[in-house]
Amino acid sequence: MISFLIVQIYINFVIGLWLLVNWQEMTKLLRIHPLLKWFQFIDCFLLNVMQIISAVRRFVTFVSYESESVFIGVFIVVFISFKDDCRHFNGHPTLLTFVKRQLMKKYLALALLLIIASCKKDEDTTPVETSSLSLNLSFKSGSTPLLFDTINYTNAAGNQYSVSRLQFYISNIQLIKPDSSLVDISDFSYVDARVAATLKIKNNIPVTGQFIGMKLQVGLDSAHNISNALPATNENINMAWPDMMGGGYHFMKLEGSYISGLSFPGYAMHIGRNQYLVNCVISHSFTLSEGSNSLGLVMDINEWYKNPANYDFEVDGNYSMGVMAAMMKLKENGSDVFMLQ
């Protein structure tokens, strides 16, 4: 904390010093009266003050002091020590000594109050204490963690395959209570298995306690599965399902290649359309407590290809696009692709 303040003060005084040194050139260019030099310097000086204020406020919030007077007390101490520092720094003690004397005499309290008051409306209100659940996604194939682009995995039908793309939506996550009632916790999230930033799904949870499982969907419900219904991000745009084929979005794109005799054809398991929304149910007992909770959510890619029916690239087709039977099989196999840990 303290070192953070010192670094801030230092950086800003270097800038202030630079402005003083270069002022001659600046004024020539801007044709500004040299008196404004001091204005600029004070400007910079106050910038430090503001940064200290915000840092101190953060600190005060951190240690849960609510009282403004405590804050002002802390501030004044920092302010006075800070001013001593800057006298050494700038090489122009006259102005600062003058300012210090004046400020300390009469106007300090007034100026401070004004500054604090002017800050106040920008400051966020004290955060409401909520409990949250982070789901950390990971991927495996059978017992092997997913490594992209290597033919490393074998599904139940015996196809040896690699994965080059795995993108999908997870929506409507619900927690199952011991009495089987459900608690809604999420809308929808986009996941790209290659992009770490998409692998953590954090939601606030309205209740805590014991749970016996989780429900979620791979894809988007009919309220969201409408062309242009989602924000126009690159991710959503690239998941769009052309209007000519019914509109909405891809629920999942799972692509790669596999070994077929002596060749390595590609495969692409794309699912979309409302009737192929994948409903997953995960049985797993867990307890969520007040504050932050996290659980691991693991997708076993092999589960897309088995249970209840084996999916064989050679028989069912290596492309699910436009093949109703293939998409239906994936939808049904998909109900147990996830597990919690």
């Binding site: 800038i15 402005l19 600046m26 801007l30 001091w38 204005f39 004070i42 400007d43 910079c44 106050l46 910038l47 003050v49 503001m50 204020i53 003058f98 300012v99 004046q102 400020l103 106007y107 100026a111 004004l114 500054i115 002017s118 800050c119 920008d122």
Partner: peptide, 22 residues
Amino acid sequence: LILLLMITGIIHSCKKDAENDA
């Protein structure tokens, strides 16, 4: 001077990223 101090302070406190550019 005090007036200037207060005004600049207020302006800065309302800015998110204060600029030092001339």
